[in-house]
Amino acid sequence: MSTHRCYVQPPPGVNPAKLTGTLIVLEGPDSSGRSTQVSMLKAWLEQQGYAVVEVGLKRSPLIGPELEQAKKGNVLSPRTMSLFYATDFYDQLENRIVPALRAGYVVLADRYIFTLMARDLVRGADPAWLESLYSRALVPDAVFYLQVSPRNLVERSLKAHASLDYWESGMDLGLSHDWLDSFVIYQRRIRAEFAKLQQRYGFEVVGGNRAARAIQQDLRGRVGRVLGNGGEQKGAQR
């Protein structure tokens, strides 16, 4: 018996029972320092002797480029956008995540279905429709949500890019003509959706308003526990 399963059932052709690796997801808004934390975790895990594969959103060769183009034009309806992202997600799930887990890798996912769902929910998607759409996703071994206050996000975003991102500010929603106002309203709404998703999917909230090193220490402890437990269980089965 394996510890892996999909939320409702696996996509055709995928057998979760064969997956011996570990899937760890880090969620959190842009400028939350999420990607930095993922790279640091990767280096640390490799030093521990784990083989690591990093995956993220919008990276599938199938539609990654088309997604980028569509985002620039801002001409797709929310549902089309949602399905485009879902295609990208499942392409990576089946062609990167599943093969890596089958080969026993630790897969670090820089965002997963929850970011996609939160964005769609803020844009009025039907929760039941979305839940079914992503019901073929693998249940991760752990999901950590890096929570950062909208104020801090603004500061970090401005410091890093000297501007706010159109999509991360939710400008397509017409919340406000003022980018900063829109950003704060949008990020609050995303956070509220994450809180609801957390109830349903049960992930761990990690305080992200701290220094990068403090967050990393915290994450290492949590990831270590996941790998330790997982290792014992898998070892006992053999």
Binding site: P11, P12, G13, P61, L62, I63, L83, A86, T87, Y90, D91, E94, N95, R136
Partner: peptide
């Protein structure tokens, strides 16, 4: 490149 799931989704 398509699997049954991505074929369906696209």
């Amino acid at each position: 490149l398509l699997t049954p799931t991505t074929f369906s989704l696209i």
